[in-house]
Nucleic acid binder design. Sequence first.
DNA 1: CGTATTCTTGATAACACTCAACTTTCGTGG
DNA 2: CCACGAAAGTTGAGTGTTATCAAGAATACG
Lengths: 216, 216
Amino acid sequence: MTMQLAISPALRELSPASWAEVSEEDGFGLGLALHFDQDCEIYGEGEEALSFYKVVSGVVRTCKFLSDGRRQIDAFHVAGDVFGIETGSEHSLSAEAVSDCKVVAYRLPAVKAVPPQLVTELLRNLSRAQSHAVLLCRRSAVEKVASFLLDWSRQPASGSTIALAMTRQDIGDYLGLTIETVSRTLSQLERDGVIELPTVRQIRIRDIEALTELNG
Amino acid sequence: MTMQLAISPALRELSPASWAEVSEEDGFGLGLALHFDQDCEIYGEGEEALSFYKVVSGVVRTCKFLSDGRRQIDAFHVAGDVFGIETGSEHSLSAEAVSDCKVVAYRLPAVKAVPPQLVTELLRNLSRAQSHAVLLCRRSAVEKVASFLLDWSRQPASGSTIALAMTRQDIGDYLGLTIETVSRTLSQLERDGVIELPTVRQIRIRDIEALTELNG
DNA sequence: CGTATTCTTGATAACACTCAACTTTCGTGG
DNA sequence: CCACGAAAGTTGAGTGTTATCAAGAATACG
Protein backbone atom coordinates (compact mmCIF):
# COMPACT_ATOMS: atom_id res chain seq x y z
CA MET A 1 0.00 0.00 0.00
CA THR A 2 1.62 3.21 -1.13
CA MET A 3 1.54 6.47 0.73
CA GLN A 4 -1.19 8.36 -1.05
CA LEU A 5 -1.91 10.98 1.53
CA ALA A 6 -0.80 14.55 1.34
CA ILE A 7 1.66 15.38 4.06
CA SER A 8 1.14 18.67 5.82
CA PRO A 9 3.99 21.19 5.75
CA ALA A 10 4.41 20.68 9.49
CA LEU A 11 5.30 17.09 8.76
CA ARG A 12 7.53 17.68 5.81
CA GLU A 13 9.85 19.80 7.87
CA LEU A 14 11.49 18.69 11.03
CA SER A 15 8.46 18.07 13.14
CA PRO A 16 7.60 16.83 16.59
CA ALA A 17 4.95 14.60 15.08
CA SER A 18 5.43 10.94 14.53
CA TRP A 19 3.22 9.05 12.12
CA ALA A 20 2.10 5.65 11.04
CA GLU A 21 -0.21 4.48 8.33
CA VAL A 22 -3.60 3.17 9.24
CA SER A 23 -6.48 1.90 7.23
CA GLU A 24 -9.17 3.15 9.50
CA GLU A 25 -12.56 3.22 7.90
CA ASP A 26 -15.11 5.69 9.25
CA GLY A 27 -16.33 7.04 5.97
CA PHE A 28 -13.37 9.34 5.35
CA GLY A 29 -11.15 6.84 3.59
CA LEU A 30 -7.60 6.01 4.54
CA GLY A 31 -6.24 8.03 7.42
CA LEU A 32 -2.77 8.81 8.68
CA ALA A 33 -2.35 8.53 12.44
CA LEU A 34 -0.28 11.34 13.91
CA HIS A 35 0.95 12.37 17.29
CA PHE A 36 1.61 15.95 18.29
CA ASP A 37 3.35 17.16 21.40
CA GLN A 38 1.83 19.88 23.51
CA ASP A 39 1.83 23.35 21.89
CA CYS A 40 2.91 22.04 18.49
CA GLU A 41 1.38 23.51 15.40
CA ILE A 42 -0.66 21.04 13.35
CA TYR A 43 -1.14 23.48 10.51
CA GLY A 44 -0.87 27.22 10.13
CA GLU A 45 -3.21 29.91 8.88
CA GLY A 46 -2.62 30.41 5.20
CA GLU A 47 -1.08 27.01 4.59
CA GLU A 48 -2.35 24.94 1.73
CA ALA A 49 -5.28 22.84 2.91
CA LEU A 50 -4.50 19.30 1.82
CA SER A 51 -5.96 17.37 4.70
CA PHE A 52 -8.60 17.58 7.34
CA TYR A 53 -8.24 15.96 10.74
CA LYS A 54 -10.05 14.01 13.41
CA VAL A 55 -9.04 14.05 17.05
CA VAL A 56 -8.38 10.64 18.57
CA SER A 57 -7.20 11.78 21.98
CA GLY A 58 -6.11 15.02 23.61
CA VAL A 59 -7.31 18.52 22.84
CA VAL A 60 -6.68 20.68 19.78
CA ARG A 61 -7.34 24.41 19.42
CA THR A 62 -8.09 26.19 16.16
CA CYS A 63 -7.29 29.87 16.27
CA LYS A 64 -6.48 33.09 14.48
CA PHE A 65 -3.74 35.58 15.21
CA LEU A 66 -4.61 39.22 14.85
CA SER A 67 -2.20 41.80 13.51
CA ASP A 68 -1.72 43.34 16.95
CA GLY A 69 -0.65 40.01 18.42
CA ARG A 70 -3.93 39.08 20.01
CA ARG A 71 -5.03 35.51 19.58
CA GLN A 72 -8.60 34.41 19.05
CA ILE A 73 -9.41 30.78 19.76
CA ASP A 74 -12.17 29.60 17.48
CA ALA A 75 -12.79 26.23 19.12
CA PHE A 76 -11.38 23.45 21.24
CA HIS A 77 -11.62 20.02 19.64
CA VAL A 78 -11.74 16.77 21.60
CA ALA A 79 -11.86 13.08 20.70
CA GLY A 80 -14.18 12.50 17.77
CA ASP A 81 -14.21 16.11 16.61
CA VAL A 82 -13.28 16.94 13.04
CA PHE A 83 -11.34 20.10 12.24
CA GLY A 84 -9.55 21.66 9.32
CA ILE A 85 -12.31 21.57 6.73
CA GLU A 86 -11.85 24.82 4.90
CA THR A 87 -13.48 26.94 2.25
CA GLY A 88 -10.76 27.52 -0.22
CA SER A 89 -7.42 25.98 -0.84
CA GLU A 90 -5.93 27.52 2.30
CA HIS A 91 -6.52 26.92 5.96
CA SER A 92 -8.30 29.97 7.36
CA LEU A 93 -7.24 29.09 10.90
CA SER A 94 -4.24 27.63 12.66
CA ALA A 95 -4.50 24.37 14.58
CA GLU A 96 -2.34 23.60 17.61
CA ALA A 97 -2.09 20.83 20.17
CA VAL A 98 -3.35 22.08 23.53
CA SER A 99 -2.14 18.84 25.13
CA ASP A 100 -0.18 15.93 23.73
CA CYS A 101 -2.63 14.46 21.29
CA LYS A 102 -3.34 11.90 18.63
CA VAL A 103 -5.11 12.87 15.45
CA VAL A 104 -5.85 11.18 12.16
CA ALA A 105 -5.28 13.11 8.94
CA TYR A 106 -7.43 12.43 5.89
CA ARG A 107 -6.98 13.62 2.36
CA LEU A 108 -9.37 16.48 1.73
CA PRO A 109 -11.92 15.27 -0.83
CA ALA A 110 -13.00 17.29 -3.84
CA VAL A 111 -16.06 19.38 -3.12
CA LYS A 112 -17.89 17.17 -5.57
CA ALA A 113 -17.24 14.07 -3.51
CA VAL A 114 -17.86 15.11 0.05
CA PRO A 115 -19.08 12.06 1.96
CA PRO A 116 -22.32 12.42 3.97
CA GLN A 117 -20.49 11.91 7.24
CA LEU A 118 -18.28 14.87 6.52
CA VAL A 119 -21.31 17.03 5.73
CA THR A 120 -22.65 16.12 9.16
CA GLU A 121 -19.39 17.20 10.76
CA LEU A 122 -19.46 20.40 8.74
CA LEU A 123 -22.92 21.18 10.03
CA ARG A 124 -21.80 20.45 13.56
CA ASN A 125 -18.90 22.85 13.23
CA LEU A 126 -21.20 25.50 11.82
CA SER A 127 -23.54 25.09 14.74
CA ARG A 128 -20.66 25.32 17.18
CA ALA A 129 -19.31 28.47 15.55
CA GLN A 130 -22.75 30.06 15.84
CA SER A 131 -23.05 29.10 19.50
CA HIS A 132 -19.61 30.51 20.10
CA ALA A 133 -20.68 33.83 18.59
CA VAL A 134 -23.66 33.91 20.92
CA LEU A 135 -21.35 33.17 23.83
CA LEU A 136 -19.04 36.03 22.90
CA CYS A 137 -21.96 38.44 22.76
CA ARG A 138 -22.82 37.69 26.35
CA ARG A 139 -21.71 40.78 28.05
CA SER A 140 -20.62 39.67 31.49
CA ALA A 141 -17.52 37.67 32.27
CA VAL A 142 -19.42 35.39 34.67
CA GLU A 143 -21.88 34.42 31.96
CA LYS A 144 -19.05 33.53 29.61
CA VAL A 145 -17.13 31.50 32.17
CA ALA A 146 -20.27 29.72 33.37
CA SER A 147 -21.12 28.80 29.80
CA PHE A 148 -17.60 27.54 29.22
CA LEU A 149 -17.67 25.37 32.32
CA LEU A 150 -21.04 23.88 31.43
CA ASP A 151 -19.75 23.05 27.96
CA TRP A 152 -16.81 21.15 29.41
CA SER A 153 -18.81 19.48 32.13
CA ARG A 154 -20.74 17.73 29.37
CA GLN A 155 -17.53 16.00 28.34
CA PRO A 156 -17.78 12.28 28.99
CA ALA A 157 -15.63 10.89 31.80
CA SER A 158 -15.57 14.21 33.56
CA GLY A 159 -18.13 13.53 36.25
CA SER A 160 -18.53 16.66 38.32
CA THR A 161 -14.82 17.42 38.07
CA ILE A 162 -13.55 19.07 34.92
CA ALA A 163 -9.96 18.37 33.96
CA LEU A 164 -8.84 21.42 32.06
CA ALA A 165 -6.34 20.77 29.30
CA MET A 166 -5.85 24.44 28.61
CA THR A 167 -4.31 27.40 30.37
CA ARG A 168 -6.10 30.51 31.62
CA GLN A 169 -4.69 32.26 28.58
CA ASP A 170 -6.40 29.73 26.32
CA ILE A 171 -9.69 30.20 28.14
CA GLY A 172 -9.34 33.96 27.94
CA ASP A 173 -8.61 33.89 24.22
CA TYR A 174 -11.61 31.65 23.69
CA LEU A 175 -14.00 33.79 25.73
CA GLY A 176 -12.67 37.19 24.73
CA LEU A 177 -11.45 37.99 28.25
CA THR A 178 -8.07 38.65 29.82
CA ILE A 179 -6.42 35.98 31.96
CA GLU A 180 -6.88 38.21 34.99
CA THR A 181 -10.62 38.38 34.48
CA VAL A 182 -10.83 34.62 33.94
CA SER A 183 -8.88 34.03 37.12
CA ARG A 184 -10.91 36.53 39.13
CA THR A 185 -14.19 35.12 37.88
CA LEU A 186 -13.21 31.57 38.79
CA SER A 187 -12.12 32.73 42.24
CA GLN A 188 -15.40 34.56 42.71
CA LEU A 189 -17.37 31.46 41.70
CA GLU A 190 -15.40 29.46 44.22
CA ARG A 191 -16.06 32.02 46.96
CA ASP A 192 -19.75 31.80 46.07
CA GLY A 193 -19.62 28.02 46.51
CA VAL A 194 -20.56 27.36 42.90
CA ILE A 195 -17.32 25.60 42.05
CA GLU A 196 -14.25 24.25 43.76
CA LEU A 197 -10.67 24.52 42.51
CA PRO A 198 -8.72 21.56 43.96
CA THR A 199 -5.83 22.28 41.63
CA VAL A 200 -5.30 24.91 38.97
CA ARG A 201 -6.32 22.56 36.21
CA GLN A 202 -9.19 20.87 37.98
CA ILE A 203 -12.59 22.41 38.50
CA ARG A 204 -15.26 20.70 40.51
CA ILE A 205 -18.80 21.88 39.98
CA ARG A 206 -20.67 22.11 43.26
CA ASP A 207 -23.81 23.92 42.18
CA ILE A 208 -24.66 23.19 38.60
CA GLU A 209 -28.02 24.92 38.92
CA ALA A 210 -26.39 28.20 39.86
CA LEU A 211 -24.11 27.75 36.89
CA THR A 212 -27.03 27.04 34.59
CA GLU A 213 -28.78 30.10 35.98
CA LEU A 214 -25.77 32.25 35.12
CA ASN A 215 -25.69 30.74 31.66
CA GLY A 216 -29.22 31.91 31.00
CA MET B 1 -46.03 19.86 -12.20
CA THR B 2 -47.28 19.20 -8.70
CA MET B 3 -46.29 21.14 -5.65
CA GLN B 4 -43.62 18.97 -4.12
CA LEU B 5 -42.03 21.50 -1.87
CA ALA B 6 -42.48 21.64 1.84
CA ILE B 7 -44.25 24.80 2.89
CA SER B 8 -42.85 26.52 5.92
CA PRO B 9 -45.20 27.08 8.87
CA ALA B 10 -45.05 30.79 8.20
CA LEU B 11 -46.66 30.13 4.85
CA ARG B 12 -49.26 27.68 5.94
CA GLU B 13 -50.77 30.19 8.28
CA LEU B 14 -51.95 33.60 7.29
CA SER B 15 -48.75 35.13 6.10
CA PRO B 16 -47.51 38.29 4.50
CA ALA B 17 -45.60 36.23 1.98
CA SER B 18 -46.82 35.66 -1.52
CA TRP B 19 -45.50 32.81 -3.59
CA ALA B 20 -45.20 31.42 -7.04
CA GLU B 21 -43.68 28.28 -8.42
CA VAL B 22 -40.48 28.52 -10.34
CA SER B 23 -38.31 25.94 -11.97
CA GLU B 24 -35.07 27.72 -11.33
CA GLU B 25 -32.06 25.51 -11.78
CA ASP B 26 -28.91 26.45 -9.90
CA GLY B 27 -28.05 23.05 -8.57
CA PHE B 28 -30.57 23.06 -5.77
CA GLY B 29 -33.51 21.67 -7.69
CA LEU B 30 -36.92 23.24 -7.93
CA GLY B 31 -37.34 26.39 -5.92
CA LEU B 32 -40.32 28.31 -4.62
CA ALA B 33 -40.09 32.07 -5.07
CA LEU B 34 -41.33 33.98 -2.05
CA HIS B 35 -41.73 37.57 -1.03
CA PHE B 36 -41.52 38.78 2.55
CA ASP B 37 -42.42 42.20 3.84
CA GLN B 38 -40.06 44.05 6.11
CA ASP B 39 -39.74 42.57 9.61
CA CYS B 40 -41.63 39.39 8.75
CA GLU B 41 -40.44 36.11 10.11
CA ILE B 42 -39.30 33.64 7.46
CA TYR B 43 -38.91 30.84 9.96
CA GLY B 44 -38.58 30.62 13.72
CA GLU B 45 -36.03 29.04 16.02
CA GLY B 46 -37.18 25.54 16.84
CA GLU B 47 -39.41 25.14 13.80
CA GLU B 48 -39.07 22.02 11.74
CA ALA B 49 -36.41 22.55 9.10
CA LEU B 50 -37.99 21.54 5.82
CA SER B 51 -36.40 24.02 3.48
CA PHE B 52 -33.34 26.14 3.05
CA TYR B 53 -33.36 29.50 1.32
CA LYS B 54 -31.48 31.71 -1.07
CA VAL B 55 -31.80 35.47 -1.08
CA VAL B 56 -32.77 36.99 -4.42
CA SER B 57 -33.11 40.60 -3.30
CA GLY B 58 -33.27 42.49 -0.05
CA VAL B 59 -31.60 41.60 3.26
CA VAL B 60 -32.37 38.78 5.67
CA ARG B 61 -31.11 38.42 9.23
CA THR B 62 -30.67 35.13 11.07
CA CYS B 63 -30.75 35.48 14.83
CA LYS B 64 -31.25 33.97 18.23
CA PHE B 65 -33.29 35.28 21.12
CA LEU B 66 -31.82 34.86 24.56
CA SER B 67 -33.87 34.08 27.62
CA ASP B 68 -33.43 37.58 28.99
CA GLY B 69 -34.86 39.15 25.86
CA ARG B 70 -31.59 40.07 24.24
CA ARG B 71 -31.27 39.32 20.56
CA GLN B 72 -28.13 38.10 18.89
CA ILE B 73 -27.89 38.52 15.15
CA ASP B 74 -25.85 35.73 13.63
CA ALA B 75 -25.57 37.12 10.11
CA PHE B 76 -27.06 39.40 7.48
CA HIS B 77 -27.75 37.71 4.18
CA VAL B 78 -27.86 39.50 0.84
CA ALA B 79 -28.58 38.49 -2.76
CA GLY B 80 -26.99 35.15 -3.54
CA ASP B 81 -26.50 34.12 0.08
CA VAL B 82 -27.91 30.82 1.27
CA PHE B 83 -29.34 30.50 4.75
CA GLY B 84 -31.35 28.01 6.78
CA ILE B 85 -29.15 24.93 6.38
CA GLU B 86 -29.33 23.35 9.81
CA THR B 87 -27.82 20.51 11.76
CA GLY B 88 -30.82 18.61 12.96
CA SER B 89 -34.44 18.58 12.03
CA GLU B 90 -35.04 21.97 13.61
CA HIS B 91 -33.91 25.44 12.70
CA SER B 92 -31.38 26.57 15.29
CA LEU B 93 -31.91 30.21 14.40
CA SER B 94 -34.76 32.48 13.36
CA ALA B 95 -34.77 34.22 10.00
CA GLU B 96 -36.42 37.57 9.44
CA ALA B 97 -36.71 40.06 6.60
CA VAL B 98 -34.66 43.17 7.38
CA SER B 99 -36.13 44.85 4.32
CA ASP B 100 -38.78 43.76 1.88
CA CYS B 101 -37.15 40.86 0.17
CA LYS B 102 -37.41 38.05 -2.30
CA VAL B 103 -36.11 34.61 -1.46
CA VAL B 104 -36.31 31.19 -3.05
CA ALA B 105 -37.08 28.19 -0.86
CA TYR B 106 -35.67 24.79 -1.71
CA ARG B 107 -36.51 21.44 -0.25
CA LEU B 108 -33.81 20.45 2.20
CA PRO B 109 -32.00 17.43 0.73
CA ALA B 110 -31.12 14.34 2.73
CA VAL B 111 -27.64 14.53 4.18
CA LYS B 112 -26.72 11.70 1.84
CA ALA B 113 -27.57 13.75 -1.21
CA VAL B 114 -26.14 17.19 -0.54
CA PRO B 115 -25.20 18.74 -3.88
CA PRO B 116 -21.64 20.10 -4.24
CA GLN B 117 -22.90 23.64 -4.59
CA LEU B 118 -24.62 23.43 -1.25
CA VAL B 119 -21.45 22.14 0.37
CA THR B 120 -19.71 25.23 -0.94
CA GLU B 121 -22.37 27.44 0.59
CA LEU B 122 -22.09 25.53 3.84
CA LEU B 123 -18.36 26.16 3.93
CA ARG B 124 -18.96 29.82 3.20
CA ASN B 125 -21.37 30.11 6.10
CA LEU B 126 -18.92 28.35 8.38
CA SER B 127 -16.21 30.76 7.38
CA ARG B 128 -18.52 33.70 7.97
CA ALA B 129 -19.53 32.45 11.40
CA GLN B 130 -15.88 32.13 12.35
CA SER B 131 -15.10 35.62 11.11
CA HIS B 132 -18.05 36.91 13.08
CA ALA B 133 -16.70 35.32 16.24
CA VAL B 134 -13.37 37.03 15.66
CA LEU B 135 -15.21 40.30 15.17
CA LEU B 136 -17.08 39.90 18.45
CA CYS B 137 -13.84 39.25 20.29
CA ARG B 138 -12.48 42.59 19.22
CA ARG B 139 -12.68 44.58 22.35
CA SER B 140 -13.29 48.11 21.21
CA ALA B 141 -16.48 49.44 19.71
CA VAL B 142 -14.62 51.37 17.01
CA GLU B 143 -12.94 48.20 15.79
CA LYS B 144 -16.26 46.42 15.56
CA VAL B 145 -18.01 49.24 13.74
CA ALA B 146 -15.07 49.74 11.37
CA SER B 147 -15.09 46.06 10.54
CA PHE B 148 -18.83 46.13 9.95
CA LEU B 149 -18.55 49.11 7.61
CA LEU B 150 -15.74 47.51 5.63
CA ASP B 151 -17.79 44.35 5.23
CA TRP B 152 -20.68 46.29 3.79
CA SER B 153 -18.56 48.52 1.63
CA ARG B 154 -17.54 45.38 -0.24
CA GLN B 155 -21.15 44.95 -1.33
CA PRO B 156 -21.44 45.43 -5.08
CA ALA B 157 -23.24 48.54 -6.26
CA SER B 158 -22.38 50.43 -3.12
CA GLY B 159 -19.50 52.52 -4.38
CA SER B 160 -18.20 54.55 -1.49
CA THR B 161 -21.69 55.06 -0.09
CA ILE B 162 -23.19 52.27 1.94
CA ALA B 163 -26.96 51.99 1.93
CA LEU B 164 -27.85 50.43 5.24
CA ALA B 165 -30.91 48.22 5.21
CA MET B 166 -30.81 47.71 8.95
CA THR B 167 -31.48 49.81 12.01
CA ARG B 168 -28.95 50.81 14.67
CA GLN B 169 -30.55 48.14 16.83
CA ASP B 170 -29.78 45.52 14.20
CA ILE B 171 -26.18 46.69 13.99
CA GLY B 172 -25.87 46.66 17.75
CA ASP B 173 -27.28 43.15 18.04
CA TYR B 174 -24.87 41.99 15.36
CA LEU B 175 -21.81 43.60 16.93
CA GLY B 176 -22.68 42.97 20.56
CA LEU B 177 -23.06 46.68 21.32
CA THR B 178 -25.91 48.91 22.45
CA ILE B 179 -27.60 51.27 20.00
CA GLU B 180 -26.17 54.22 21.91
CA THR B 181 -22.63 52.96 21.47
CA VAL B 182 -23.20 52.29 17.77
CA SER B 183 -24.61 55.77 17.32
CA ARG B 184 -21.85 57.44 19.30
CA THR B 185 -19.15 55.51 17.44
CA LEU B 186 -20.57 56.50 14.05
CA SER B 187 -20.78 60.14 15.15
CA GLN B 188 -17.19 60.04 16.35
CA LEU B 189 -16.03 58.54 13.05
CA GLU B 190 -17.83 61.35 11.25
CA ARG B 191 -16.21 63.99 13.48
CA ASP B 192 -12.84 62.38 12.69
CA GLY B 193 -13.56 62.72 8.98
CA VAL B 194 -13.46 58.98 8.39
CA ILE B 195 -17.07 58.71 7.28
CA GLU B 196 -19.97 60.95 6.36
CA LEU B 197 -23.60 60.42 7.32
CA PRO B 198 -25.74 62.13 4.64
CA THR B 199 -28.86 60.43 5.99
CA VAL B 200 -29.41 58.01 8.82
CA ARG B 201 -29.34 55.03 6.51
CA GLN B 202 -26.51 56.16 4.26
CA ILE B 203 -22.87 56.05 5.16
CA ARG B 204 -20.21 57.45 2.91
CA ILE B 205 -16.69 56.29 3.48
CA ARG B 206 -14.23 59.14 3.20
CA ASP B 207 -11.06 57.54 4.49
CA ILE B 208 -11.03 53.81 3.85
CA GLU B 209 -7.42 53.54 4.99
CA ALA B 210 -8.21 54.89 8.42
CA LEU B 211 -11.06 52.40 8.57
CA THR B 212 -8.80 49.55 7.53
CA GLU B 213 -6.30 50.68 10.13
CA LEU B 214 -8.97 50.48 12.81
CA ASN B 215 -9.96 47.06 11.57
CA GLY B 216 -6.42 45.77 12.08
C1' DC C 1 16.45 23.21 45.21
C1' DG C 2 16.25 27.10 42.18
C1' DT C 3 14.42 29.22 38.22
C1' DA C 4 10.84 30.10 34.85
C1' DT C 5 6.28 29.97 33.97
C1' DT C 6 1.62 30.30 35.24
C1' DC C 7 -1.73 31.96 38.18
C1' DT C 8 -3.78 35.08 41.58
C1' DT C 9 -4.74 39.36 43.68
C1' DG C 10 -4.79 44.45 44.14
C1' DA C 11 -5.20 49.37 42.58
C1' DT C 12 -6.35 52.26 38.94
C1' DA C 13 -8.31 53.86 34.70
C1' DA C 14 -10.79 53.42 30.45
C1' DC C 15 -14.53 52.04 27.92
C1' DA C 16 -19.14 50.76 27.21
C1' DC C 17 -23.67 50.37 29.49
C1' DT C 18 -27.61 52.54 31.70
C1' DC C 19 -30.86 56.00 32.25
C1' DA C 20 -32.71 60.16 30.57
C1' DA C 21 -33.79 63.98 27.56
C1' DC C 22 -33.98 65.65 23.17
C1' DT C 23 -34.04 65.58 17.91
C1' DT C 24 -34.93 63.62 13.68
C1' DT C 25 -37.34 60.66 10.69
C1' DC C 26 -41.29 58.11 9.21
C1' DG C 27 -46.01 56.96 8.49
C1' DT C 28 -50.85 58.00 8.83
C1' DG C 29 -54.91 60.47 8.40
C1' DG C 30 -57.08 64.80 8.16
C1' DC D 1 -49.64 68.75 1.66
C1' DC D 2 -49.37 69.46 6.28
C1' DA D 3 -50.02 67.99 11.14
C1' DC D 4 -49.64 64.82 14.37
C1' DG D 5 -47.92 60.87 16.89
C1' DA D 6 -44.90 57.03 17.00
C1' DA D 7 -40.59 55.17 16.14
C1' DA D 8 -35.74 55.66 15.47
C1' DG D 9 -31.64 57.99 16.37
C1' DT D 10 -28.54 61.22 18.88
C1' DT D 11 -26.40 63.20 22.80
C1' DG D 12 -25.29 63.84 27.76
C1' DA D 13 -24.22 62.52 32.63
C1' DG D 14 -23.17 59.00 35.74
C1' DT D 15 -22.08 54.29 36.92
C1' DG D 16 -20.13 49.71 36.58
C1' DT D 17 -17.42 46.16 34.60
C1' DT D 18 -13.37 44.83 32.70
C1' DA D 19 -8.69 45.98 30.93
C1' DT D 20 -4.30 47.46 32.35
C1' DC D 21 -0.35 47.71 35.13
C1' DA D 22 2.08 45.81 38.88
C1' DA D 23 3.38 42.77 42.53
C1' DG D 24 3.22 38.54 44.81
C1' DA D 25 1.99 33.35 45.22
C1' DA D 26 1.79 28.87 43.39
C1' DT D 27 3.18 25.50 40.24
C1' DA D 28 6.14 23.09 36.92
C1' DC D 29 10.52 21.54 35.55
C1' DG D 30 15.14 20.79 35.21
